[in-house]
Every structure is written in structure tokens, then in C-alpha cells.
């Protein structure tokens, strides 16, 4: 079994895994980070989105070995200690979640959306950018509101990938 090593939420981790192990399985089963969810088997729903070196990635369609050496952030690593990330706050404040199952992927996608598109997002941009994330509870109305507000609160945060590129 191959060894995979990466940094997850700031901590170096390493394990021997079956080569078939998906990143989401590695996170959920090996590391017990169960905040990243699996809602489908065709890379459509986005419940599994994590950040790999600052880029949103569907962890259900990525082998663990493909992110060897990368810096992975999951929903559990988004807050700064006890201080919630502004996008997490915005989802709570705007009732952007109901059952909560799609929420970790929504928040991770939303944060990266702001890194790519800036903090002044209009409704149409948010709706188009959410193409890869499904929610069955909210009708997206309050998710769109939450991302709009969360983006404003993130003003100035251009994300690790953009910062590294500069």
C-alpha cells in the first residue's frame, strides 16, 4: 500500500492507504474529519469540496495520492481557533443552511469563489458560480444572500493561491 503525506488543517499527516483511497475517504475515515461529506458519486453535488493549496477541489473524485505534499484545508480548519470564518458567520446570520449536509461544501466553494472573483459579487455571478454545489433544502435564496454578505466581510482576503502567485 502506498504512503501518502500531506498537511491537513495545518498538521502534517501520513498514512499507508489502498491506492484506490479517495481524498474524501482519507479525510473522513483515516483522519476522522467527517465534516467533508459525500452526496453523490458523479462529482455533481459539491458536498465534498475542500481546498487544496487554496483551490476548491471535489475530494470525492480525487485519489489521496494525487494531493501528495499539498496543503489541504477542510471545513474543520476554516475557522481561526474559536473565531468563525466570515463566510461561516454569514451562513448562520442569513439562514443559509437547513439540514446542514451540503453546507461544508457550500462554504468552502463560497470562500474560494471570493478569492477568484473578488468580494463584490452580484446575484447572477453567485448563482452561476454555484453550479457545482447542490442544495435540496434552501432553494438557494438564502445561500445567495449569505455568500453576498460573506464576500463583503472577506474584503481584502485574496486567498493563499493568489497570494503565492504574486
Amino acid at each position: 500500500m502506498p504512503t501518502v503525506s500531506m498537511t491537513v488543517n495545518g498538521k502534517p499527516v501520513s498514512a499507508n492507504v489502498d491506492a484506490r483511497t479517495l481524498l474524501v475517504q482519507f479525510l473522513r475515515e483515516n483522519l476522522r474529519l467527517t465534516g467533508t461529506h459525500v452526496g453523490c458519486d458523479t462529482s455533481q453535488c459539491g458536498a465534498c469540496v475542500v481546498h487544496v493549496d487554496g483551490v476548491a477541489l471535489k475530494s470525492c473524485t480525487t485519489f489521496a495520492w494525487q494531493v501528495e505534499g499539498a496543503n489541504v484545508t477542510t471545513i474543520e480548519g476554516l475557522a481561526n481557533g474559536d473565531k468563525l470564518h466570515p463566510m461561516q458567520e454569514a451562513f448562520r446570520e442569513n439562514h443559509g443552511l437547513q439540514c446542514g449536509f451540503c453546507t461544508p461544501g457550500m462554504i468552502m466553494s463560497a470562500v474560494e469563489m471570493v478569492w477568484r472573483k473578488g468580494s463584490d459579487l452580484d446575484e447572477q455571478t453567485i448563482r452561476e458560480e454555484l453550479d457545482g454545489n447542490l442544495c435540496r433544502c434552501t432553494g438557494y435564496h438564502n445561500i445567495v444572500k449569505a455568500i453576498h454578505a460573506g464576500a463583503r466581510a472577506m474584503a481584502g482576503d485574496r486567498g493563499p493561491a493568489q497570494q503565492a502567485a504574486e
Binding site: L33, T34, H37, A79, L97, G100, P104
Partner: peptide, 17 residues
């Protein structure tokens, strides 16, 4: 604002899987 949200927005919910 919902009491249950904190665990869902931080990935600390407990679903069956």
C-alpha cells in the same frame, strides 16, 4: 438565529455515516 447551525457550519454535525 439557529442554535444548531454552529455544528453544521464547522463540520461538527453527526450524520449516520
Amino acid at each position: 438565529r439557529r442554535k444548531e447551525d454552529f455544528r453544521f457550519i464547522t463540520g461538527k454535525g453527526h450524520y449516520t455515516d
